[in-house]
Computed example of a mutant assay.
Amino acid sequence: MTDTGKYTLENDLALAIGLADAADAISRERFKSVDLEISTKPDRTFVTDADRAVERAIRDLVTSARPEDAFFGEEYGTAGDARRQWIIDPIDGTANFLRGVPVWATLISLAIDGVPVVGVVSAPALGKRWWATIGAGAWIQEGTEAPRQIRVSGVSNLADASLSFQSIEQWDDAGYLDRLISLTRTVWRDRAYGDMWPYMMLAEGLIDVVAEFDVKPYDIAALIPIVLEAGGQFTTIDGHDDLAHGSSLATNGLLHKSVLDHLNTK
């Protein structure tokens, strides 16, 4: 079992769920607000006042509840230096959020020694929340329904698989566009669902493969425990299993080697 220090993973999950509640209260109120403040960051991505408010609120709550833990958020960077680090994307899918598209979520993860062990994905506009801790399964709650455990699909052939590739531009910029097109001609179905949603659909068994480039640790840290605990596999597109290589490949596990082989053969 993962050494979490003086806290149990159950304690940490309870805190993460509380952080998600606080985040949802802020983001839900700002979603589709006529006075939403939007600006552009140096990397040409958008940020809203909601992104910043959510991250500030989560950071304050973590500092109060776990003052010895480190923190890493998309908008305000790193604070502290500890084995235990909370990794936060306050609004994953900001472009959707600012356009009124409901596919966005707050991503909350606790990583210990760089390994995500708790993940919460809260998507209030969709009425869904997913979570997992290592060793305790992956779960979804939809609206006021009781939580239920989720599991990846049993699809074992690429010809029967459903793929989400996220963005043509990403694959073109990475020099993998030809390999993506080849993969789309191999699978049964391909779509670009975007952001956190396809990973959660993968964990629910609704699709079978998700792959993308240009990802940061805060984009994927919360997703990893959920995919793994649902029975899936999560690496980079070239097969690494940490957060620092800039791409991600999540599958139901049965297809992982086939997809890796396909994407890494020129």
Score class of each variant (00 low, 15 high):
P147G: 07
A53H: 11
F72Q: 15
A221R: 01
M200E: 04
A132D: 11
I112Q: 02
Y199F: 13
P42M: 00
R83A: 12
F234V: 12
Q166S: 06
P102M: 07
E74K: 08
S248L: 14
N157G: 03
F46N: 00
V152W: 05
N11E: 15
Q166L: 10
I226W: 00
A136M: 04
A230P: 04
R44W: 13
A79R: 14
E142G: 02
I88V: 15
T2G: 00
I38K: 12
L254N: 15
T106M: 03
A50D: 05
H245G: 02
L206E: 15
E229L: 05
G175P: 11
R59A: 14
T144C: 00
P42S: 03
I58S: 05
W197K: 14
D241F: 03
W130A: 05
I108M: 11
T133Y: 08
I181T: 14
A105F: 05
R151L: 10
A70T: 10
S33W: 01
I150G: 13
V103H: 13
W139H: 13
A174W: 06
P225H: 08
P67V: 07
R185C: 07
R84F: 03
A230E: 04
A79P: 05
P116Q: 08
L223K: 02
A82S: 15
F165H: 12
E204P: 04
Y193L: 15
G93R: 06
A161T: 09
H262P: 00
G135D: 05
E10F: 02
D195K: 05
D214A: 12
Y76I: 14
P116D: 06
S27R: 06
I108R: 08
L13F: 03
L61G: 09
R189N: 15
V209A: 07
P116Y: 04
R84C: 08
D160S: 08
R28Y: 05
T94A: 03
R83G: 08
S167Q: 10
A65D: 10
L255T: 05
E142A: 12
R151H: 14
R52D: 09
F46D: 00
A23W: 02
I88A: 09
E204H: 03
R59W: 04
A111T: 04
R52A: 09
D49K: 04
G143A: 12
D219S: 01
R185H: 13
V118R: 09
V259E: 06
A211I: 06
I26K: 03
A16R: 01
W131K: 00
W188L: 06
I168A: 12
S109I: 00
G93D: 03
E75G: 02
E229N: 01
A222F: 00
A23Y: 02
G194C: 04
D12M: 08
D49T: 11
R179E: 06
R56A: 10
V227A: 15
I134L: 15
D172R: 15
